[in-house]
């Protein structure tokens, strides 16, 4: 094992250990926040694989998040499936949707790719509204507390919910950490840095990008399904443009193309919005200011700047 991979193992397992410790150290309010943050970080990690590592900026990831969310929610509420099966339904739906979007959207590049993904997500959001009699539109629906039992564990309690979120987070976190160091992940980075060159080195860039969209979309869908299951609510808000912008914001803030960036970004943004919404109802103002400042002064994000200035080995 090289020195760098030893460091990165320490970093990843250390982060998970820290999250375990925080459960015992933090007051209940922050523990509740942290459960939510970890699930959203899974969403951010899914987005980061595509944006940070592959260099493809999707402005429509809410479609995948919402697909997972509605896949699980409707499987449970409309069709009465148990939560384990419903989770699979949610993820399978996300895989199907991301495959379709990938096949279509990857025919475009650059700005057109952003707009195409934005448009598909918008169509998805409007579809949720249009079929309001099934999806309950803007109002959304609640998944009953009695139903929210996963693998025999009642996940509505603070403790079980925290550890369910932590397990999910850890699996995806380690998976991504493994993936980005694998030949597959290095090829994604190569595509991000110079697609034409990568193609002319004999890599099938089209297939790699499609796989990246599918994996990214599926992880986002998994996050959406888990969010619905853990917090018991499914609503059209999660399909809006705003929820496509959030992961971009988190990842940019934390550091695109770093394994730890998404978590850092979600933590910062979550508390920033939490604090500012106490002061004003215009809490999204903070998001706007942060986005502009980031593009101007720290395009690499927090973890990215740390990597650039201090720890070059940061994964």
């Amino acid at each position: 094992m090289t020195k760098n991979s030893l460091y990165s193992h320490c970093l990843h397992f250390g982060t998970i250990a820290l999250l375990v410790a925080l459960f015992f150290l933090l007051p209940a309010y922050h523990v509740g926040n942290l459960s939510r943050i970890m699930v959203l970080a899974v969403y951010a990690m899914g987005f980061n694989l595509l944006f940070g590592y592959t260099g493809l900026l999707s402005l429509g990831h809410a479609l995948f998040f919402a697909t997972g969310m509605y896949g699980l929610g409707m499987a449970m509420n409309t069709f009465g499936l148990p939560s384990e099966l419903a989770l699979i339904v949610g993820v399978v739906c996300a895989i199907l949707v991301s495959t379709a979007i990938g096949l279509l959207a990857l025919r475009t590049t650059g700005v057109a790719f952003m707009i195409v993904t934005l448009m598909f997500a918008q169509a998805g959001y409007l579809t949720v509204l249009y079929f309001g009699s099934y999806t309950r539109g803007d109002e959304g629906f609640v998944i009953q507390q009695a139903e929210r039992i996963f693998a025999g564990v009642d996940i509505t309690g603070e403790t079980s919910r925290y550890f369910a979120a932590l397990i999910l987070f850890s699996i995806v976190f380690l998976l991504i950490a493994y993936l980005v160091r694998s030949p597959f992940g290095r090829t994604l980075v190569a595509i991000r840095e110079n697609e034409e060159r990568t193609k002319m080195l004999g890599y099938d860039t089209v297939r790699h990008k499609l796989l990246a969209v599918i994996i990214s979309g599926s992880i986002s869908g998994l996050a959406g399904a888990a969010y619905a299951l853990l917090f018991g609510y499914v609503g059209a808000t999660f399909a809006t443009v705003q929820y496509s912008i959030f992961p971009l914001l988190w990842v940019l803030l934390g550091g695109a193309g770093t394994t730890l960036g998404p978590l850092i970004g979600v933590v910062f943004m979550f508390y920033l919005i939490d604090l500012s919404s106490e002061l004003t109802q215009a809490y999204m103002l903070i998001a706007g200011v942060v986005l502009v400042l980031l593009t101007l002064f720290a395009p690499q994000g927090l973890a990215g700047e740390i990597r650039r200035k201090v720890f070059k080995w940061l994964p």
Partner: peptide
């Protein structure tokens, strides 16, 4: 694009 998304929220929320 990212900067104008930021601008969007700044103007709207202001």
């Amino acid at each position: 694009i990212v900067a104008t998304i930021g601008l969007l929220y700044i103007i709207q929320q202001t």
